[in-house]
Amino acid sequence: MQVKKLFAKQETLVALTLFGLCLVIGFINPVFWTAGNWFDLARSATVTGIFAIGVLIVLISGGIDVSFTAIAVFAMYTTTVLLKDAQYTGGMWLFFVIAALIGLGLGLINAFFIARFRLPTLIVTLGTQSMFRGFLLFVIGSKIIRDIPPGMADYSKAFLFTVTDDRGVTVGLHSAVLWLVAIAILAFVILRYTMLGRGIYALGGSREAAERAGFNIARTQVFIYAFVGVLAGIAGMIYGGLNRQANAQDIVGQELDVIAATVLGGASIMGGRGSVIGTLLGVMLVVVMSNSLVLMGIPATWQRVVVGAIIIIGTAVPALRTLRRQRRSVNVEPETLAPVGGRT
């Protein structure tokens, strides 16, 4: 029974798929199993992973946020411009602090419209996405900044440790992955062990019941969108640091991929369901998939098709299972116990 329950979970399914995929790709191209490739995977998963955890929390609460990419690029670009103009030569920490604060501010704008006016979250965030992006390009700037402050430039080489492989190439695991680990743990604890987190699940399960039970819906929503804003600011800054440039045209456009990875990991688009573990697995699956296509020499344009297909299959499987369960609902008696009476 326990085993059956485990297999009914989307998380298990995604984990198994991921594992199978790794075996297949590793078999086709042994480069897959090298440290260098895994460090690369970790690096690609970091930004998407942080975004996805933000999306997870919004989805659980029954909302949807498409503005986080705009917040990320806004925070990253603005922070870079500010510190460049200030001729700041210190470390990366200040970049993170400022980007997180900008993210918080923009997240609070979302929260204000959603909690105060009870507007649909999709509409609000579609609107703010456009606003944040437009404001950034028009007021702050649109040129690519390649000449970034030294602290940010150094960050791209902030490895946790490095390995030199047989061919003499030195590869390293970037420290940004620590952000992902820390944020994942934080989100896990909030969602699982605080009343605030349970309130987020409750809100996504039934808003009316949550209100009647005495949850403070507005406060919960303010937390959610502010938290997502902060995560977006940090992820945006990591993105800029890893790429060693600040491009105001970047990041926006990735939001659907992130939402898809989250849904693939078991979060329900209807709210109320989802887990941090599942989300991380979903992100890994998408990242490994894209990475493997490159390793197998499949053109990048095909990646879009494959990612789309995975998403549809990944969400169709649990839906089919629910459908089947509904259809076969009666326990039919194996043998007729009483004769069918014909007393017409």
Partner: peptide
Amino acid sequence: DFSLFPNLTVAENIAINHEL
């Protein structure tokens, strides 16, 4: 409509208001 949370477990549904 019972005002329950369909996505949560029986235990949590019973206890949640009390905890709140």
